[in-house]
């Protein structure tokens, strides 16, 4: 089947089988390895993509379901060679160690901050309730999101 969608602003056309997940198509056909395959059953959050403005698990979607959708991955956060406020904040606050969860964390942060520029601690914890990190203990990730909110406010 032919599936067409927008990926980080660019049109994509792929021939896929109905039984391929969106995650497998992004990784194995489009070679977008920033979208991680952790548990492959919806539990870890490393395969997060933003689908029509909403963060979702790409491992639980069929690729054919992405037809006509607008998808953003971590490559869509900033132009190549520049850093978005979220990326800058994760660097400043050591929001990652091994980096496996980072794409999913940053995309979750983007959707949260786009709709809620000054999130409370509880807002952050709620938005990240399904994003697992085995390195940081989450404190640095929370600080990174708070710092990203500051950087975004300062820029305005």
């Amino acid at each position: 089947m032919i599936v067409r969608f927008r990926l980080n602003g660019e049109s994509v056309v792929q021939v896929v089988k109905p039984n391929e997940t969106l995650l497998d198509v992004l990784r194995d056909r489009i070679k977008l390895h920033s979208v991680k395959k952790g548990c492959d059953e919806g539990l870890c959050g490393t395969c997060t993509v933003i689908l029509n403005g909403v963060p979702v698990r790409s491992c639980l979607m069929l690729a054919v379901q992405a037809n006509d959708a607008d998808i953003i991955t971590v490559e869509g956060l900033a132009k190549l060679g520049t850093l978005s406020e979220i990326q800058q904040a994760f660097l400043e606050k050591n929001g990652f160690q091994c980096g496996f969860c980072t794409s999913g964390m940053m995309l979750t942060a983007k959707v949260l901050l786009d709709s809620n520029p000054k999130p409370s601690l509880d807002d952050i914890k709620d938005a990240f309730d399904g994003q697992l990190c085995r390195c940081t203990g989450y404190e640095q990730i929370i600080e990174s999101v708070q710092r990203a909110a500051e950087l975004r406010t300062a820029k305005k």
């Binding site: 109905p18 391929e20 990784r27 194995d28 395959k37 492959d40 379901q65 037809n67």
Partner: peptide
């Protein structure tokens, strides 16, 4: 190396 893929079984797909 290709990532390990656990393919889904084959099925007909309809999107009415």
């Amino acid at each position: 190396m290709e990532a390990e893929v656990r393919p889904l079984p084959r099925f007909e797909y309809f999107s009415p």
